[in-house]
Amino acid sequence: MTMTSPRSEARTARGRTPSRGERQVDGERTRAALLDAALDEFTAKGFAGARVRDIATRAGVSKDLVAYHFGGKDGLYLAVQEAWLRREDTFSDPDLPLTELVARYLRDALTDPRPLRLLLWRGLTDPDHAPPDADPEAEDLTATRARQQHGELPDDIEPAMLRLLLLAAVAAPVAFPDTTVRLFGTSLDDPSFEERYLQGLRGLLAHLSSAAATSAQ
């Protein structure tokens, strides 16, 4: 059922006024539906191409609720980014071995590639028309430098280059799905693909670790 205004959230199917707890649950469901719909629209069309009306229609609510819950399109985009950062916190642990950390990022990207596609869209957008950024600070390379010091990564390669290399390796199947399918001869949905790709990533990381050990001698 499509809701027509913020006030409609305060109505139940029988028309009675719901309790405060019911209103809170209803509002949370609406926010969740809008966030999921926005992620679909932003990853399909980019920030500039996505329309608030289409997001609301996909979520099954009035477009007025986008402004009510998020303040508008910019606020909704920021909320989508913040939701991804919270999701990342559930599986990203800097204390994990690098092979396991990279494996977790790959599994997440293959399970739901939308956040990574959102990042790719951002890279394709004219900087003068870039969407808002929930995390505008420069990338923190402290963890990468620590792995260099501990011998997991070679210390004769710039940390920024190593970080970009690992990001590209994880993102490649999502960024180039058709090419990946042609190269590996299997669908990205095939469970065997994930294991084959992980095996390749582990081999790459083993070479980097070996190079780190050699440079330390």
Results as ranks from 00 to 15, higher is better:
Met3Leu: 12
Ser5Cys: 08
Ser5His: 13
Pro6Trp: 06
Pro6Gln: 07
Ser8Cys: 07
Glu9Met: 13
Thr12Ile: 04
Arg14Leu: 08
Thr17Phe: 04
Thr17Pro: 07
Pro18Val: 02
Glu22Pro: 12
Val25Met: 06
Val25Cys: 05
Asp26Tyr: 04
Asp26Leu: 12
Asp26Phe: 04
Glu28Arg: 14
Arg29Lys: 15
Thr30Lys: 13
Arg31Leu: 09
Ala37Lys: 15
Ala38Asp: 10
Ala38Cys: 10
Leu39Glu: 14
Asp40Arg: 14
Glu41Tyr: 10
Phe42Leu: 11
Lys45Gln: 07
Gly46Gln: 05
Arg51Tyr: 10
Val52Pro: 01
Arg53Cys: 03
Arg53Leu: 09
Asp54Lys: 14
Asp54Phe: 15
Ile55Cys: 07
Ala56Tyr: 15
Ala56Asn: 11
Thr57Trp: 12
Thr57Leu: 14
Gly60Tyr: 06
Gly60Lys: 11
Lys63Phe: 09
Lys63Pro: 10
Tyr68Val: 08
Phe70Tyr: 15
Phe70Ser: 00
Phe70Leu: 03
Gly72Tyr: 02
Gly75Asn: 09
Leu76Ile: 09
Leu76Cys: 09
Tyr77Trp: 09
Ala79Ser: 08
Val80Arg: 06
Glu82Gly: 02
Glu82Ala: 08
Glu82Asp: 10
Glu82Val: 01
Trp84Tyr: 14
Glu88Ile: 04
Glu88Asn: 09
Asp95Gly: 02
Leu96Asn: 03
Pro97Glu: 01
Leu98Met: 01
Leu98Ala: 01
Thr99Ile: 02
Glu100Leu: 10
Leu101Asp: 03
Val102Ala: 03
Ala103Trp: 06
Arg107Glu: 14
Ala109Ser: 12
Thr111Gln: 14
Asp112Trp: 12
Pro115Lys: 05
Leu119Lys: 03
Leu120Trp: 06
Leu120Tyr: 08
Arg122Met: 03
Arg122Phe: 01
Arg122Asn: 04
Gly123Tyr: 01
Leu124Phe: 06
Leu124His: 06
Pro127Ser: 04
Pro127Val: 08
Asp128Gln: 09
Ala130Ile: 02
Ala130Asp: 08
Ala130Gly: 10
Pro131Cys: 06
Pro131Ile: 06
Glu137Thr: 02
Glu137Ser: 04
Ala138Val: 07
Glu139Leu: 03
Asp140Gln: 00
Arg145Asp: 00
Ala146Asn: 02
Ala146Val: 00
Arg147Asn: 04
Gln149Tyr: 15
Gly151Phe: 14
Gly151Asp: 10
Glu152Ala: 07
Ile157Leu: 11
Arg163Cys: 01
Arg163Gly: 01
Leu164Thr: 05
Ala169Phe: 01
Ala169Pro: 00
Pro173Asn: 08
Pro173Lys: 13
Val174Trp: 05
Phe176Tyr: 10
Phe176Ile: 01
Pro177Phe: 06
Asp178Glu: 11
Thr179Ala: 15
Thr179Tyr: 01
Thr180Met: 10
Val181His: 13
Arg182Pro: 00
Thr186Glu: 14
Leu188Cys: 14
Leu188Met: 15
Asp189Val: 15
Phe193Tyr: 14
Glu194Tyr: 11
Glu194Val: 12
Glu195Gly: 01
Glu195Tyr: 08
Glu195Met: 06
Arg196His: 11
Tyr197Ala: 03
Tyr197Arg: 07
Leu198Cys: 04
Gln199Ser: 09
Gly203Asp: 00
Leu204Asp: 01
Leu205Met: 02
Ala206His: 05
His207Thr: 03
Ser209Phe: 03
Ser210Val: 02
Ser215Arg: 15
Ser215Asn: 15
Ala216Phe: 14
